[in-house]
Amino acid sequence: MSSRTMNTSSRDTTSSVTHFILLGFPSSPERQLLYFGLFSVTYTLTLMGNTAIACAVRRDRRLHIPMYIFLGNFSFLEICYVTTTVPNMLANFLSTSKSISFVHCFAQFYFFFSFGCDEGFYLCIMAFDRYLAICRPLHYPRIMTKELYMGLVIFGWSGGLILFLTPVILISQLPYCGPNIIDHFICDPVPLMMLSCSEDTTTQIIYSTFNVIFMIGTFLFVLCSYFLVILAVLRMPSAASKRKAFSTCASHLAVVVLFFGSVMVMHVIPGSVHSVKMQKIVTLFYSVITPLCNPLIYSLRNKEMLTALKKIFGTEQTLHKI
C-alpha cells in the first residue's frame, strides 16, 4: 500500500468516531439516582461557597488588596473548573446513552485541564504574594504594584489556556477508528490516547513531559516559597504576628496539599500502577471534592474573610425581611 493511501486511510479513520461513551460509575438505576443527588448537593455547595468568597472580595473594600484579589479570582476559577465536568457527569447519571460528542469531549478535556493548570499558577502566585508580604514587608508596597498584581491575575487565567492548546491539538489529531468507550466520568487524555488506532509515542512523551515539568515545577515553587515564609515567621518577635502569619500560611498549604497531592498521584506516578477504579476516585477528589473544601479552608481560618462573609449574609437577610 502506498504512503498516500495510508495517509488517506488515516484521515478517514480519524473522522469515523463522532462521539464517545463515558461509562462514569456503572451501577443500578437506583444507585445512579443516589449519585445524582449526592453530587448535585456537592456541586451546589461548591458554587455557593466560592461565589460567596468572590462576592465578599468584590464588595468589601477592606479586602481590595492583592492577597484577597488573588483569592477572589481563585474562587471564581474554582467555579469554572468544577463546571467543566460536573454538569455533564450529573446528566450522565440520568442518561442511558452516556454519550458525548467528539468536539464536546475535547472541549471538556481542554477547559478542565487548562483551568486545573491555572489553579496551579494561582497557588504559585498566592505563595509568591505571601513570601513578599512576610519576608520582604518593607519592600512589598513597592514591588507588589497594581500593574504587577493585575499582570499576575491575567497570567493566572491565561497561562493554562495557552499552554494546554498543544497537548489538546496533538491528542485530537490522533486517529480514532474503532472503540469509543471511555471507562471514566470525564474525557481524560490517558484513556483517549489508549483509544487511538495508532500508538503515537511522540504525543505520549510530550504530554507526560508537560505534566511532570508543570506539576513538579509549580509544587517546588510553592514549597520553597512557604519554606522561606515559615523561616521568616519563626524569627518574628511578636507571638500575635506569628499566629496570624501561621494561620494564613496553614490555609494556603492545606489547599496546596489537597490539590497537588491528588493531581501528582494521578498524573506523575506511572498510570500502570493505578486501577481504573482508583483513577476515578483520585480524579473525583481533585475535580469535585477539592473545589468544595477550598472555600471552607480559606474562610474558616481567616478573620477578615469571615467578617466580610457575615456582612454580606447579614445584608441579604435584612433585605429579605424588608
Rank of each mutant, 00 (worst) to 15 (best):
S2K: 07
T5H: 11
T13K: 14
T18G: 14
T18M: 08
H19Q: 13
I21L: 05
F25E: 15
R31S: 07
Q32T: 04
Y35R: 10
L38W: 09
V41A: 15
T46S: 15
M48E: 01
A52N: 01
A56C: 02
R58D: 00
D60A: 04
D60G: 02
R61Y: 00
H64E: 14
F74S: 09
Y81K: 11
Y81S: 13
T85M: 11
A91Q: 08
F111D: 03
F115V: 04
G116N: 06
C117Q: 08
I125H: 00
C135T: 09
R136K: 12
L138V: 08
R142S: 13
R142D: 11
E147L: 09
Y149Q: 04
W157K: 06
S158M: 07
G160N: 03
D183P: 05
C187H: 10
D188I: 09
V190D: 08
L192S: 07
S196Q: 04
S196A: 15
C197E: 10
E199Y: 04
M215V: 01
G217T: 02
V222G: 00
L228S: 14
L231E: 14
K244T: 08
F246G: 00
H252I: 05
A254H: 02
V256N: 05
L258W: 09
L258F: 13
S275M: 03
M278V: 13
V282G: 03
F285I: 11
S287G: 01
V288K: 04
T290L: 02
N294Q: 03
L296H: 08
K303E: 15
A308N: 02
K311H: 11
E316F: 11
T318K: 13
